[in-house]
């Protein structure tokens, strides 16, 4: 998949993805090569979480498994952790959560 600088911590699931999945714990100072560019991580990131596979523009669709999972709230540099703080759902929910976290129509 990644013939040069194969990552030991990051998994690309789908060719269209602009996120990579963390498959081994990432610690500050860890380095990795993402699509030919070296990235130095600045924080702890747990297994199953996502990082940007490249620089992502504010408002850009975010793809995982080749499927849009939302869009970027702000510009996200390659290698940055992507989660609730910088990624939002684009789903206009028919069903939403009430204050008790119960689905209501």
């Amino acid at each position: 998949m990644q013939p040069e600088g194969k990552s030991r911590k990051l998994l690309r699931i789908h060719r269209d993805d602009n996120v990579l999945i963390v498959v081994a714990p990432v610690r500050p100072g860890d380095r990795d090569v993402i699509d030919g560019c070296e990235v130095v991580f600045t924080q702890n990131i747990g297994i199953g979480h996502k990082v940007a596979a490249r620089d992502i523009r504010a408002g850009e669709k975010v793809y995982k498994c080749g499927v849009p999972i939302g869009s970027a709230k702000e510009p996200i540099p390659a290698g940055a952790h992507m989660h609730l703080h910088n990624l939002k759902s684009d789903y206009i929910a028919t069903y939403t959560l009430d204050k008790d976290h119960v689905f209501v129509k």
């Binding site: 999945i21 963390v22 297994i47 498994c65 999972i69 939302g70 989660h83 789903y91």
Partner: peptide
Amino acid sequence: AEGGLTTIEEKSI
């Protein structure tokens, strides 16, 4: 969210 899932779309994937 702790497991890394951010949006409902992502969970459904």
